[in-house]
Amino acid sequence: MAAMTTGAKARWTLLDIIVVIYALVPVLWIVSLSFKTPATLTDGNFIPREWTLQNYADIFSTTTFLRALGNSIGIALISTLIAVVLGTMAAYAIARLEFPGKRALVGVSLLIAMFPQVSLVSPLFEMERSLGLFDTWPGLILPYITFALPLAIYTLSAFFREIPWELEKAAKMDGATPAQAFRRVIAPLAAPGVFTTAILVFIFCWNDFLFAISLTSTEASRTVPAALSFFTGSSQFEDPTGTISAAAVVITIPIIVFVLFFQRRIVAGLTSGAVKG
C-alpha cells in the first residue's frame, strides 16, 4: 500500500468521490427539498434560496406522523428481536447438529425468502381480517418475522460455521453445561454475526412498504412508509413534497443511529487466535 504512487492515489480518490456523489445526491436532494418553502420547491436549485423549518414543524404538529413513527420503531424493534433470537437458535442447530430433514429445512426457508411477497398480500389480508389481526401490530410483526427469518438463519449459520467446534468441546471439558458453553463461549463469538443480522433485519422491517400499506388501515398500526403516502398539503391544492421530504429525512435518522450503534460491536476477526492454522 505504501508503494502506491501519487498517480494511483489520485485516481482512487477521484473514483471514491464519484461513487460517493452518485450515492449521496438523491439523499442530499431530499434534504434540500425538506428545507425549501412551497414557493421555491420546484425552482431546481440544489441549495435552497429560502430556508425554512416549516416542513418539519408541520409533520410534528399533527399526530399522524408521530403515531406512524412510534409504530415503525415498535414494530421494527420487536420483529428484529424475535427474528434474531429465533434465527440464532435455528442457525446454531443447522451449523452444529446433524438431524433428519436439515437440508429440507434450509431449502424451505430459502424458498420463503425467494417467494414474491406481492402474491401473498391478498391471502394475508383475508387471513388477518378473519383472525382479527388486521391493522394491529402483530398483524405486521408476524409477516415481518416470516420474511426476515430466512435472512437471519442464512447469515447467522455462516457465522456459526466460522466458530471452531473445538472451542465448544474445550468449554465442555472445562466444566460447562451446553447452555453455559453457548452463552459464555459461542454467543460472544457469534455477536458480530448477530449484530450484522439485526441491522439487516431492522432495515428490512423499517423500509417495508408493501405489507405496511396493505395490512393497515388506521393510525393504530400504520408505519411511516405507509403513512407518508397519505400525506397531503395543508390545502388540497398544495404540494406535499416538502413535508414528505422532511418525514423521509426524519425516518432515516433512527436507521443511522441503529447501524452506528451496532457497527461498533462488529469487530472483524474476533475469532482469530482461537486455533492455530
Partner: peptide, 20 residues
C-alpha cells in the same frame, strides 16, 4: 457421565483457546 462431571482436563491439538 457428561464431560463436566468426569473432572478431566484436555489439551487440544489446536489449543482451542477462547479468543474473546
Amino acid at each position: 457421565r457428561a464431560p463436566k462431571d468426569r473432572d478431566i482436563a484436555m489439551v487440544f491439538q489446536s489449543y482451542a483457546l477462547y479468543p474473546h
